[in-house]
Nucleic acid binder design. Structure first.
Lengths: 237, 237
DNA sequence: GCGACCGTTCGACCGCCGTCGAAGCGGTCC
DNA sequence: GGACCGCTTCGACGGCGGTCGAACGGTCGC
């Protein structure tokens, strides 16, 4: 009787359809403002605020205030896994739920984050750049007016001389003033992935090479047959 | 709005503490009668019945009537995964919840089912016996008065001549009338594991050899150092 | 067959929680 | 600094759902 964690508290949070809508809207790792989530759930701003407060208190979402907006995002990969487990148990629309499940997994693998790559692929590329000595520590500055993209930004990266050469070689042309390295803490992987001009340039180049394809309407990114081989060769991914 | 599975319905089921207690009591794969679950949840029989009805309708548990008792069990491994995901998210007692988590995983690996082995280990042994040709199809009969031990019992096994020899050789002595093969559908693996006299004999022999140890008060079974090597050699497990 | 027992259904009570509009707080833009 | 805007808090309303005891259908034991 006393020894169990109150798992029911978590269940109660997921017992409301509006809250579930909010969580599902956040399931691909985006950070969305409260107003957007209210619209997504089809509910008034005050009601949404109540829901978000409970989700926050329950540890399912975290909030990051940016200017007068407050961006919410899922608190971690655990929440994504929980959602996945619940979708697997929700029977009513077997086909839809299956498609949703695979879609979520695809997003976890590779997706866009604004104009650059995120997900396992984005993290793998970042990791390779660091491991290969193309990207090292530095003292770059992050523009505080940017929308929130991750949890902590306490590490600074900078392209090494080899990194600059590699960018040229790979076909990513950056204006001299735009070589500052920015990055996000990837939500699904909880590791860094490259953003900023370099991240955008690499994604653009990957598309140009035909290695990956961006979905027209959502944030999914699919790896082509040629891309599979090229990515493995270039990034070991 | 319309395309989502009503995941909230599942959440609502898990939003009640009594229901969670019931599910956790069932988490190790046992089938328990309604009265026991009522006591486990600390609630009256009528209330428990209501909860069980909802859980059943929601597809989280299945029921099997046996005489005047009705045995409930979790509907499948999905439910176990869901519970695990929720425990990971329930923060209040970090230490306890962690211990619970590892305990559940240990049970999933190896546990007793009445007097024989279940879990991954039990399934692996059964699979090896079949693969090695020691156990084949037959026409054995199952006693319908036994408590429910699995979902379907439509396959009949029988020890082959080689199987009989192997049992002798391994040190399992069975009375001539007790060689009928019984099995259960393992809940966590959804495959068969050996029960009946042979299953009990094998477990007893494994304990005698010092390969596994049964926990004094619960159903956990731990593999010893010697057992790890012996099991690998004997069953490829 | 008749009592004992297990389980479900019914009816009534109670409490909790989601909902919204209005008001309050803080930050931005001109 | 003033007006606007995003978000949260407050108060009041309404409904859904958990709870129990009592009554009912089934099954086992003698």
């Amino acid at each position: 009787m006393p020894g169990d964690a109150d798992i029911a508290a978590v269940g109660a949070l997921l017992g409301d359809e509006r809250r579930c809508r909010i969580l599902l809207a956040l399931d691909d790792g985006r950070a969305l403002p409260a107003s957007r989530l209210a619209a997504e759930a089809g509910v008034s701003a005050s009601t949404a605020s109540t829901h978000l407060g409970k989700l926050r208190e329950g540890g399912l979402v975290t909030v990051q205030t940016h200017g007068r907006h407050r961006f919410y995002r899922l608190a971690g990969p655990h929440v994504g896994r929980l959602l996945e487990a619940m979708v697997a148990l929700a029977p009513p629309r077997p086909v839809t739920s299956l498609r949703e499940g695979t879609r979520a997994r695809a997003l976890r693998r590779a997706r866009t984050c604004y104009d650059h790559l995120a997900g396992e692929l984005g993290v793998a590329i970042m990791r390779h750049l660091v491991d290969a000595g193309l990207l090292g520590g530095g003292d770059g500055r992050r523009d505080p007016a940017d929308p929130p993209v991750g949890f902590g930004h306490d590490v600074d990266y900078r392209f090494t001389a080899e990194g600059d050469a590699w960018l040229d070689d790979f076909g990513v042309r950056l204006a001299p003033g735009r070589r500052a390295v920015r990055y996000c803490v990837d939500w699904t992987e909880q590791e860094h992935h490259l953003s900023g001009a370099a991240g955008a340039g690499i994604l653009a180049r990957l598309v140009e090479l035909g290695w990956v394809r961006r979905a027209p309407k959502d944030r999914a990114v699919t790896v082509t047959e040629a891309g599979r081989e090229g990515l493995a060769r270039t990034f070991g991914a």
